[in-house]
Computed example of a mutant assay.
Amino acid sequence: MSSIAVIGLGAMGRPIARNLLKAGHDVMVWNRSDGPADELVAAGARRADSVAEAMHMPVVFSVLSDDQAVAETFIDSGALARTADGTVHVNLATVRAGLARRASAAHAEHGVGYIAAPVFGRVPVAEAGALNILAAGEPALIDRVQPLFDVIGSRTWRLGDRPEQANIVKILGNYLIACAVQSLGEAVSVAERAGVDSGQFVDLLTSTLFPGAVYSGYGSMIAERRYQPAGFTTVLGRKDLHLALQAAADHDIPLPIGQLLRAVFEQAIADGRGSDDWAVIAEQQPR
């Protein structure tokens, strides 16, 4: 049995913490609001009164929403200076490469291990313990937490010894999902205008040319215009798109489709669809 803290109990953090509990681990939880923590305490977790208390656990998973939340919680708060010796922090958030480098340096300064481990998989995948984990950092640290990764994921992809390498891969993966959603929306809109049943059209595509979770999952959402409950919101999708554009600019690589998508996301959010699933960008196409 391992002792682990989970910081951030949103849509992904809760099932991750719950699966660790079910596997028999000693789990401490912390969240800005009490409700999600109450639920997990009732299931057997221990509550941390502060981030600093949680950082005294040997392993800490954090599942926060963006760069600002990560920086405020760990780097700017002084929490690292109060972290127990030998603690390993596993950051599951999707953050920009620059913040990953800053976080890695800050953790090293205070003698705290740091691994970047963003994931591929929506909430049902997290609930099933079948996430794909994109891990980068010191190999010995990844070895140490691998048994915990095996609880929450189906496969760990080791992507390098620099944490930002995992974040770059996650950002680019999400960029390709956004491209797929946009192309699906365009194709479905033309099919519907031509009198083709959109559900049958998507079923045909995903059974032949484009099998896989992205086209089948998002294709059915677009065909049915089903954007709630949101597995990943439009606001978060825009954030990750901006991370991809920034990463490309850092390496002097143009992303022409990304520039188009920037306008699509901005318009969707301006239309009040920010809290819908990001597949709603397909609604920017005339239907």
Results as ranks from 00 to 15, higher is better:
residue 211 P to Q: 11
residue 226 R to H: 07
residue 48 A to Y: 13
residue 92 L to W: 02
residue 122 R to C: 12
residue 193 R to W: 14
residue 264 V to R: 09
residue 74 F to V: 02
residue 280 V to N: 00
residue 131 L to V: 06
residue 119 V to E: 03
residue 97 A to L: 08
residue 88 V to I: 15
residue 58 P to H: 00
residue 211 P to L: 15
residue 196 V to T: 07
residue 149 F to S: 02
residue 185 G to D: 03
residue 272 G to T: 14
residue 131 L to D: 00
residue 274 G to Q: 03
residue 64 L to W: 01
residue 186 E to C: 12
residue 103 A to I: 15
residue 238 R to M: 13
residue 160 G to L: 14
residue 182 Q to A: 12
residue 219 G to P: 00
residue 132 N to K: 09
residue 100 A to H: 08
residue 224 E to M: 05
residue 78 G to C: 10
residue 75 I to M: 11
residue 43 A to M: 11
residue 151 V to A: 09
residue 250 D to L: 14
residue 100 A to P: 15
residue 172 L to K: 05
residue 179 C to P: 02
residue 53 E to P: 12
residue 212 G to A: 11
residue 138 E to P: 00
residue 216 S to C: 06
residue 268 A to L: 02
residue 235 V to F: 04
residue 17 A to R: 00
residue 169 V to T: 12
residue 65 S to G: 15
residue 139 P to W: 15
residue 211 P to C: 09
residue 102 R to N: 07
residue 218 Y to R: 09
residue 31 N to M: 04
residue 208 T to M: 12
residue 50 S to W: 14
residue 188 V to R: 02
residue 17 A to D: 02
residue 125 V to E: 13
residue 263 A to Q: 14
residue 243 L to F: 04
residue 277 D to F: 00
residue 117 A to W: 01
residue 260 L to F: 11
residue 8 G to N: 00
residue 287 R to E: 08
residue 133 I to E: 07
residue 181 V to M: 07
residue 144 R to E: 07
residue 74 F to W: 10
residue 100 A to L: 15
residue 60 V to D: 00
residue 268 A to M: 02
residue 273 R to Y: 01
residue 161 D to N: 07
residue 275 S to F: 08
residue 8 G to P: 00
residue 230 A to Y: 03
residue 79 A to D: 10
residue 76 D to V: 08
residue 229 P to D: 13
residue 284 Q to R: 06
residue 89 H to R: 07
residue 142 I to D: 03
residue 116 A to G: 06
residue 75 I to K: 12
residue 73 T to K: 13
residue 53 E to S: 03
residue 69 A to E: 09
residue 142 I to V: 14
residue 197 D to G: 13
residue 174 N to I: 05
residue 238 R to D: 11
residue 168 I to T: 04
residue 129 G to F: 02
residue 40 L to H: 15
residue 4 I to V: 12
residue 20 L to N: 03
residue 170 K to W: 15
residue 28 M to V: 14
residue 257 I to E: 06
residue 19 N to Q: 06
residue 13 G to V: 04
residue 51 V to F: 06
residue 174 N to D: 04
residue 280 V to C: 03
residue 23 A to M: 10
residue 282 A to H: 02
residue 137 G to M: 04
residue 27 V to I: 14
residue 231 G to L: 03
residue 118 P to M: 00
residue 198 S to D: 08
residue 95 V to S: 01
residue 270 A to I: 01
residue 224 E to Q: 13
residue 91 N to K: 10
residue 254 P to W: 05
residue 6 V to I: 13
residue 162 R to T: 15
residue 45 A to S: 06
residue 217 G to N: 07
residue 41 V to S: 04
residue 122 R to W: 12
residue 45 A to K: 03
residue 63 V to L: 10
residue 15 P to I: 14
residue 110 H to A: 04
residue 171 I to Q: 09
residue 134 L to V: 07
residue 121 G to M: 03
residue 249 A to F: 11
residue 90 V to Q: 01
residue 232 F to Y: 01
residue 177 I to K: 04
residue 202 V to P: 01
residue 211 P to K: 14
residue 211 P to W: 15
residue 155 R to G: 06
residue 10 G to D: 14
residue 14 R to Q: 11
residue 9 L to S: 05
residue 277 D to H: 00
residue 156 T to A: 13
residue 61 F to V: 02
residue 153 G to A: 08
residue 229 P to F: 07
residue 106 A to T: 10
